[in-house]
Design a protein around this nucleic acid. Structure first.
Lengths: 150, 150
DNA sequence: TTCAACTGTAATGTTTAAAATTACAGTATG
DNA sequence: CATACTGTAATTTTAAACATTACAGTTGAA
């Protein structure tokens, strides 16, 4: 599974978590644990799809514009990772005499495409808001365990 | 997505297609388009799960013992590819002060685990028999287009 | 009873894809 | 016009996937 998808979700949730909903690629990269160039490349894609606003120049960065409750993981998957589920590895050989060897690749491709649709269907029920809520639930849990320790 | 899964499905369908339901790792590797050592490693796993019989020594090889209608792609996925859907890449850092950075990995892990379950559910509705039928459907299509050419 | 044809598996080498890094042009701000 | 950003191409590094070699163990047949 494509890590760009994970980075994008993390970045967007991070932005959503900030009061100003804004951060530079350096701040995001630091929080995510990757390189700022990678973040910029991914955020570029999200900007083209209208999820974030970009401001170049000093004091610039990325600002979350999307409605957290409206954007689902399926949207992000489609923007950044569509097709990544289908393996590049091909089995068999279309030019072969054997029916199995010559057609297995097409058959498997169909199965994987359909599997990916199911995956997207599952992702379409998870919004960025849901993810942020899960993070907040962790926060409460952490606070509880700290209280117990004291 | 793990190519061992694809190789296993291809190999099993290939065996099912043969009158004797039997072939050596060399024959299978040739049909699949990979190396025989790779096939042997994968078939070893399938043997341990009881899908094929193995016969060492001269004239040996692998024989399909499983019921085509009973074995689903979910079975094969669980034997060979379970967990491969979850990305190894981790975002954030659990030791971090920020709630997002410290918990994003756990949250994403949960989402991916659940996604994998959905995937398995989808695969559980596709039997090896179904795959072989799809291959046979290709065969008929090929025959038709040959007739048209004549 | 030994040779040829197999499997099983570990070790190694090769290739490819993923990720990080460097580099630099373009843009806003003070 | 210096500083702090984005955008993107090119390059290097790293890690994973895959192929290959090597060899011990097994079986059947000449």
């Amino acid at each position: 599974m494509n890590s760009e998808f994970t980075i994008a979700v993390h970045s967007l949730v991070f932005l959503a978590y900030l009061p100003e909903r804004m951060a530079s690629s350096d701040m995001i990269a630091d929080n995510v644990g990757t390189h700022s160039v990678r973040v910029r490349k991914i955020m570029s894609g999200l900007r083209r799809s209208g999820l974030v606003d970009t401001r170049e120049g000093s004091g610039g960065g990325y600002r979350l514009t999307a409605d957290l409750q409206a954007v689902t993981l399926a949207d992000i998957y489609q923007i950044l990772a569509k097709g990544s589920f289908i393996p590049s590895w091909c089995s068999g050989d279309p030019g072969r005499d054997c029916v199995v060897a010559s057609n297995m690749n097409d058959v498997m491709f169909g199965i994987f495409c359909s599997a990916e649709k199911h995956l997207e269907e599952y992702f379409s029920h998870i919004t960025l808001h849901d993810v942020l809520e899960q993070i907040r639930a962790c926060e409460e849990k952490d606070a509880d365990s700290n209280n117990l320790q004291q």
